[in-house]
Structure formats: structure tokens, C-alpha cells
Design a protein around this nucleic acid. Structure first.
Lengths: 194, 194, 194, 194
DNA sequence: AATGAATGAGCCTTCATTCAT
DNA sequence: CATGAATGAAGGCTCATTCAT
């Protein structure tokens, strides 16, 4: 009956509405009341789709993970070579931050609201970021094809960390300079050390 | 006529108690009730020291800023040269994350809970991070004394972003590898490009 | 046009499922949701068999009344003489309480949940207990055949009240001593005063 | 701060208001909303006096225990001899049921609402009834001073069970005949078997 | 028949804050 | 200065019931 997590058009719509609010205001700062009023439904209806607030939170991050990856892949696909793709990563970040009005990353934003590392939401955050790191490392492996894999792996980690640092400081300062600085550094890094 | 923010021993004690709770549980997840019960005081007493919850939050971050800087300077003072100090920055980060059980940075953790960039707390976060960035840039300026200042400034920004990225991903994965990877990269970066 | 109360196999099955839950948890503490989930049916299906929760409650007590009486008669039929049957009443009570884990009497348990004495459920409770009292009085009339009927009737009432008292206190203390004490008293009472 | 269970005039008043509602409607059927509206206070005020609904329930039964015992002792004190006191017990019961409009016993009424025998409320019910049983046994011990104590103890139990049976069936039928029948039986029982 | 989404009043509880003492 | 009772909106969630499919 309710909350098996099966996707339905209505449930999907609710996830979208909740997602917008969660992303803009934070998970804790968003109440079920606000969600249902925005959606124009009754309390009980909401709880026939989700068993708890945390479940919508989970659905939010899971859907976001997919959408975000799709968006990213689309941006990267414009470049042919790994180097171009890596730099496109930072173009993507810049565009994203500007369009979202520097609201930052839904996953990092949720990190501090869920102190228990065993919670499903924390698992989701971790797996999302692991996915990003692996994607970047796949690109550096291609780029540094003639270098030892440990070297490429290390560089991938560094780019990942620069991406994360640029992301969060762009959010903090509401400026793009952390992103452009990181991009610049990576560009020369990729050129020089091949 | 309460809460002009003047420092008193009692107020200081309350800030310390609240700080611990805010840091461990998050600002939003910590209630005034919990603070006063931990402190063993009455509601009214609390509100004679602070005019609102947000004011304690502000006091928390302001005090944290000072303490954190002191702690950092102490760690850095063990090294003589700027390069050593920069690397010590990451040793400090590693120690901090381990001792805090990977709870992360009080300022970054508060970022998502205060979406309004004009809020006093956001100002505090921004100024704290600006301070860190400037401190790092002061060190890179010394290290790269013979290079153009724009170069040193850029490298300082990069180190700052790596610090932030390593910090937040160490929190996310509850592991030190992001920190050690960043440290390793910076070590070679500082050696090679002088 | 649902819920005229006509017996069907499906309705009967639902009554059985609801009965178990009502008896174990109480009428008020059991939700329709739990009933339909246990039965594996939809809300609407439930309401095509019953017009309201109270109707299932009524069906529960009516069916219980029949089953309980059958069970009791079966136990009593093992004894030939009224005296034996009366004592068997308390053996039955002891067995019942132990097997039900001292959950008590479905009718007495419902008494406090329905304060309105005019409600159908209260009528059901009253008629059930009246039936028990009359059954006991029929036995005492046989036993005291040579005594005035008012005497037998009085003794029947006393045995009924002892049964009820033993029942509820056995439930309260989760022990059989109230039942064995009552049985002992009645045994000597029936022997002496003939 | 709140809900240490310490008695204050306001808390006492709230317990009285809640008690009336719990007794008339049942614990589960009475909402906090109704209690606070009757008392003319705000939700938060209620929860500054009690930490949970169950705590008021507990306070209700504890206070009732004391009041009921006082009331009973007062009634019994009018009789000098144990026999008179025992009979007065049933006069008391009759008066009580009539005055309460046959609402029955607060403790027995709560029995079915708390299936867990380890719950504090069940403990309270049990201890209340144990107290009554012991009080009755104290009287039978005096009455049967020249008989073996086991005899007196047994008779005490029987009187206790008759009391309970008369109580609950008086509630069920909303009549006094169960009480007068029990009283009559006990009167002859006490006279004959000395 | 059977489904299950939808309702909205209601559940118990916590929130940050105020203010008379 | 400190107290803690009082506020009432809001928190997340469950209830019995209805009804279009």
C-alpha cells in the first residue's frame, strides 16, 4: 500500500516539489506542511506515498544523484578527450553554481544534518561522492595512460578534492573565482605532467 | 536589558556548552532546552544572556574562530619555513578530524542551515574562511618570494581549496585519505615549482 | 451497498483477523490499517464488508459469544451432574486464562472503551454476561432442586460474580490463584448447603 | 525543570481535570487537547508539568489510589467490628457505583488499555488491587481470629473476588443487584462459619 | 467485488520565546 | 540576576472514512 518506494507519477511529482524545498531551505528547515501545501494535497495523501519525512529525503537524494549524473555526462560528452572532459567538469560546476544561485551541493549540504554515518542518507551521500571520484579517476587514467595507475589515481583524487573545495567555497563566497582558480590549476597540471 | 553580547564568565560558559552541542548535533538539531538542561540553568537565565538562539550561534562561531586560529597557529609555529607551515596545516587537519570523530568544520556545517547570505552567521562563516585563505596566501607569498605575487596568490588559493576539499571529504568518508592525498600533492607542488 | 452484515466467507475471515487483533491489543488500539494489512486486502474492500470499525467490533463480539459458549458447553458436557459442571466452569476459566496469556475477557475488556450504555457494543456485552449468568443459574437450579428457587437463583448469582471476579483478577495478577480460590470455595459451598 | 513529578498546585489541578476525563471517557479516548481546553491552558504548559500523556495517566491512578483508600477507610471507620467493616465495604461500593453513574473502577477500566504487564500503569493497577485484597484479608483475620490463618486468608480472597465481581457486573448492568447479592452472601457467610 | 489514492481532523510532542515573580 | 510557568504555532505522523476507477 504505501511507501514501498515504487515510482508513480504522483509520487514523482511530490519528490520534485520536496526536492526544490529541501535544496533551497535545507532538509530540516522544510516541513511536511510546506510540502503538502505547495503540492496542494492533504497530509494523509503525502503519507500514502512516503512512510516518513526521511523517506522523501532519501528519494530526493537518489533522484538528484541520477539527474546530476545525467546532466554532468551530457556536459562532458561535448568534449572528446579526457583532458577536455576534466576541464568541462569545472565549466559544468560554474554553470551549476550560477544557475542555482550558489546554493551548493545537495549532498554536502545534507552532510551536517545527519551526524549518524550509518543513516541511509549518509550512505547515499557517500555513494554519490564515491561515484564522482571514480568518474574523475576514470578520466585521469585515460589521460595519464602511459603513467603508472597509482599516479593517475592520485591525480584523480586531487582533482576530485579541488572540485569539492571549489564547490563549497563558491557556495560560501557566492562567487565563481574558486571554480576558475581550480580550473586554471588543473589545466596546467594536466598539460605539464603528462 | 539583556544580551548586548558583553562577555561575562557565565555567558562564556553557556557559549561553551552550546558550542559542544551545536558542533556535535548541528545548530538546528540542538534545542534551547538541551542547552539549559546541560548548563543547569533556567530558560529566563539563558535569555538574559542571549536575545535569541541565533545569537548563541553567532557567539559559538566567533569564539570558535578565535580558538581554531589559536590552535592552528600553535601547530604551525613548530615549523620554521613557510613550506613546513603549509604542510603542518594538513597535519593539523588530520589530527583535528580524528579527534573530532570526523565531525567536520563548524563553519561549513552551518553553511547549509543558513541559506540567506546576508545573515550574520553567513557573514561570520565567510569572514572565517577568508581569514584562512589569507593566512595560507601569506605563507605562499613567503614561499614563492621570487615569483610574481599573482602566482603565489593563485597557489595559495589552490592550497586553500585543497584544504577545504580534503576537510569535507574526510568528513564524508570518515577517513584521512583525502587529507594525506592533498598533503602529498602540495608537498611535491611546493618542491617543484619554486 | 455494503455491510448489511450478511455472513460471507471473506467477511468471516476478516472478522477472525480483526478479532485476534482486538483481543490482543484492544479495540481502540487496533487500527483498520493493521487489519487490512494482516488480511492483505485494500481499504475499500474492508469497507465493502463493514460500514464502520464499530461494526467489525460488533461482529467480533457476536462471533466470540457463540464460540465462547460452544467452547464452554463442550467443557461442561464432560461432567454429568450440575455440581461437576459448575466446577468445570472454573477449570475452563483456568485453562482459558493460561492459553490466552491472561488477556482476560473480550467483553469485560471492551466495557471501559464504550462508556455509552446504549451503544450496540454495550448491549452485546450485557447480553453475553446475562447469558452466562443464566446458564450458571440453570445449573444451580438443578443442583438445589429441593431448595426454593430464589435460593438457587441467589447462589447462581454468587457463583457468577465469583467467576467474574476470578476472571478479572487472574488477568490483573497474571496468576491462576484467583481462579483456584474461587473454585475451592464453590466446591465446599455446593457440598455443604444442599 | 518539567515533569519530575513534583506536586504543585497547578499540576495537581491538571491531574484532577485529566482524572475526570480519563475516568469518564477512558485514557485512550481522552486527548491532550481536551485536557488543556478544559483547563484553559496552552499545550506547552501541559508539557511543562508532565513529560508525556502516560505520566498524567500514572499521576491519575496514583492520586486515585490515595483518595479511594481514604474514602474507603472513612466509610469503614463507622463500623467497629471487622464484620461490620466488611459489610460496609459493599455499602461503600453501592454508593460509589451510584454516584459515579456506574462508571466502574478506574484501575480495572485501564487494565485492557495497557496490555503490557510490565508497564508502569499495569504495576500501579496491580499494587492497588493487592492493597485492597490485603486490607480485606486483614479484616477477615480479625473476624476469624480463632480459626487457622489460612482459613481467614482464603475467606479474604473470596470476599475480594466477590467485591471485584460485584463491581464489574454492577458497571456492566448499571444496576446494584450484583452488589446487594454479594453483600447478602457475605453477611451469611460471616455469621455461619465463625 | 476490489482497489488504493485522497481526505482532513486528530494524535502526542517540541519549538523558540516571553514575562510576572 | 535568576526563575520556570505560560504561550501557541509548528513538528512529524495516524486515524477512520470516502470514492473514482
Amino acid at each position: 500500500m504505501p511507501s514501498t518506494g515504487k515510482a508513480t507519477p504522483k509520487r514523482d511529482e511530490l519528490v520534485d516539489i520536496a526536492s526544490k524545498l529541501f535544496y533551497e531551505q535545507g532538509f530540516g528547515a522544510t516541513g511536511i506542511k510546506q510540502i503538502i501545501e505547495t503540492a496542494g494535497i492533504a497530509k494523509g495523501t503525502f503519507y500514502s506515498h512516503f512512510s516518513s519525512k526521511e523517506e522523501v529525503g532519501l528519494a530526493w537524494l537518489r533522484k538528484r544523484h541520477t539527474q546530476w549524473n545525467n546532466w554532468l555526462q551530457e556536459k562532458l560528452s561535448a568534449s572528446k578527450h579526457p583532458k577536455g572532459k576534466i576541464l568541462a567538469l569545472f565549466d559544468f560546476l560554474e554553470q551549476w553554481m550560477q544557475e542555482s544561485n550558489f546554493r551548493g551541493c545537495a549532498f554536502l549540504n545534507s552532510l551536517s544534518e545527519f551526524p549518524d554515518p550509518e543513516s541511509p542518507i549518509r550512505q547515499e551521500i557517500e555513494s554519490h561522492k564515491r561515484g564522482l571520484q571514480e568518474a574523475i579517476q576514470a578520466l585521469t587514467s585515460q589521460h595519464y595512460a602511459e603513467k603508472p595507475s597509482s599516479f593517475a589515481s592520485h591525480k584523480g583524487t586531487i582533482i576530485f578534492l579541488l572540485f569539492e573545495g571549489a564547490l563549497i567555497e563558491s557556495q560560501n563566497f557566492r562567487k565563481v573565482w574558486p571554480i576558475t582558480a581550480a580550473r586554471k590549476e588543473i589545466k596546467s597540471l594536466l598539460a605539464v605532467e603528462r
